[in-house]
Structure formats: C-alpha cells, structure tokens
C-alpha cells in the first residue's frame, strides 16, 4: 500500500486555517487599497503618452486598484511554478512517486493563478492602456508561461506509463521554469521599433500602497498553499482508493 500514515496530516488541517487567513488578508488588502491607498495619477506613466487614442498623463486611474490583486496573483503563480521545478528535480534524483504528485499539484495551482493573472491583466490593459492586447514584456511572458503550463498538462496526458510521465513532466517543468525569466529578459531588453515599450515605474509606492500590497501578497500565498494541500490530499486519497480497488480485483 502507498502511504499508511500521513506525517504531514498537521499541514492538512493547517490548510483550512491558512485558507481562512488568506481570505481575510486579501479582503483586508482590497478594502485598504480603496480606503487608504491614494489614487494613482497618470504619473505612473513616464511621459505623456497616447495610448489607444487617449492621453494618460494626468488622469486618476481607479483601475489601478486591480494592481493590488494582479501583482500578488502573478507573483504567487510564479512561486508555484518554482515548486514545480523543485519537486521535479527532487523526483529525478529520488524517483519517488510523491514528488511527481506534488509537482503536478503545484502546477495545477500555478495554472489557476496564471489564469487569474491573465484575466486581471486583461482588465488592467483595457482600462490603463486602452488596448485589449499588446506584446508588452510582462504580458508576453505570462502568455508564454500559460502556454508552457498548458503544454505541461498536455504532455502528462499523452504518456501512459506513470514513471515515464513523471520523468518527462519533471524535465519539462524544470526547463519551462528556466525559460520564463529568459523570456521576460528578451522581451524586455530587446528594443523593437514595432511595439513601444510602456515603462511604468513601480518604485513610487508609498507606505499606504505598500501595506495593502504586502497583505494581499501574503494572503495569496496562504490561499495558494491551502489549495495546494487540499488538492494534494484529495489526490492521495484517490490514489489509495485506486490501490484498494486493484487489491479487491486480485
């Protein structure tokens, strides 16, 4: 039988608490972002710029509130992907099934957060830049990231043998994780005449903006970890069920 006792059962019950904490933190962060954080002027755009047919130098950008959601979600998804790569490497070294399962669940969480990033990013663009899509570095990177994660699951679905599947997924997870920063660097550093790079200076965050941002970030981490533990437990129970069923057939 696979696992008779769960040494991490404590973590599973902590998952509920973490989810609750995460929910509270993110909610507080959102409320704070509206109540205390100052509205951002168009000063966040470097210079007066014509974007999507409108000048955005001196406009109050209420849509900037998306930022308090968007940025933590994006960071969380990347951290989840980091865990995919770490568990992948652990699997390749130790060849234990559990690492593959963890890598898979981490990638599932990454996908959820990437999708949230993409959706919130879409609103952001529409209202701040006035376009639905632009091949801007961060957007492009996240789009590629999303394709890589989808590719990861298509790859898993295409291999029947569980050990091969685990090895291939681990290797691809590691390469994909390395690919993402390069992708960002390339799209960021190579100037092209075709698409103007819209530079935003994120350094101008005052304390009243930093606080909700940090709360939101910590909250998102809690939510992601809670979801991860839940999903992992569900998957493990499912596996034990399968093993029991097989045992009955014999």
């Amino acid at each position: 039988m696979t696992e008779k006792k769960h040494p991490l059962r404590g973590l599973d019950s902590a998952a509920v608490v973490l989810l609750a904490i995460g929910a509270v933190l993110t909610t507080v962060a959102f409320v704070l972002s509206f109540v205390s954080a100052p509205l951002v002027y168009g000063a966040a755009v470097d210079a007066p710029a014509l974007i999507g047919g409108q000048m955005v130098t001196n406009k109050l950008l209420l849509s900037q509130k998306i930022f308090y959601f968007h940025m933590p979600v994006a960071v969380t998804s990347f951290v989840a992907l980091l865990f995919t790569a770490i568990f992948g490497a652990l699997f390749l070294v130790r060849r234990e099934r559990r690492y593959d399962l963890r890598a898979k669940v981490a990638t599932e969480i990454a996908l959820v957060f990437i999708l949230m990033t993409m959706v919130s990013g879409e609103f952001w663009e529409r209202f701040e830049w006035g376009v639905w899509w632009t091949w801007e570095p961060r957007l492009t990177t996240y789009f590629i990231l999303m394709l890589l994660v989808i590719g990861y699951f298509i790859l898993r679905g295409a291999v029947d043998d569980p050990e091969r599947r685990a090895v291939f997924a681990s290797v691809f997870g590691i390469i994909a994780f390395i690919d993402v920063p390069i992708c960002f660097l390339v799209t960021r550093l190579v100037p092209t005449s075709v698409h103007p790079v819209i530079l935003r200076t994120d350094s101008g965050l005052g304390p009243m903006m930093l606080l909700p941002l940090m709360l939101s970030l910590v909250g998102m981490f809690c939510i992601a970890f809670g979801l991860y533990r839940f999903r992992l437990r569900e998957q493990r129970l499912r596996e034990r069920l399968e093993a029991l069923k097989e045992g009955l057939e014999d």
């Binding site: 989808i150 291999v159 390469i175 799209t187």
Partner: peptide, 19 residues
C-alpha cells in the same frame, strides 16, 4: 514515445523557443 507526438512537439517546442 507519446500519443499524438507531432502536435505535442509543437505544443512544447514553440512556447519554449519563444525567447
């Protein structure tokens, strides 16, 4: 060694070489 290998290669290859 996978099912539908032609499409799968494209799915993995193109995003990876994007940079």
């Amino acid at each position: 060694g996978t099912r539908g290998k032609d499409v799968l290669l494209a799915v993995l290859f193109i995003p990876l070489i994007f940079p």
